[in-house]
Amino acid sequence: QVKQQIALANAQELLQKMSEKCFKKCINKPGSSLDSSEQKCIAMCMDRYMDSWNLVSKAYGSRIQRERNR
């Protein structure tokens, strides 16, 4: 249950970050609706943010391993 709560907190933090980062990257002047290019940008931005999160997670993990083995 602790595990699930952490997983949930992690997903919520990720969702919040992606909303803020992708809003900032993709919406320059907020109009009366999201146009298709903004929607496309958001979808790409979200995928790239998750790629980045995975990449960082791996790089950070392997660095911690290296520091432990020193």
Binding site: I6, N10, E13, K17, W53, S57, Y60
Partner: peptide, 12 residues
């Protein structure tokens, strides 16, 4: 949980 918080910060 601490490691994940650090991953969020580094990703940012």
């Amino acid at each position: 949980a601490q490691l994940q918080a650090q991953v969020h910060k580094l990703t940012d």
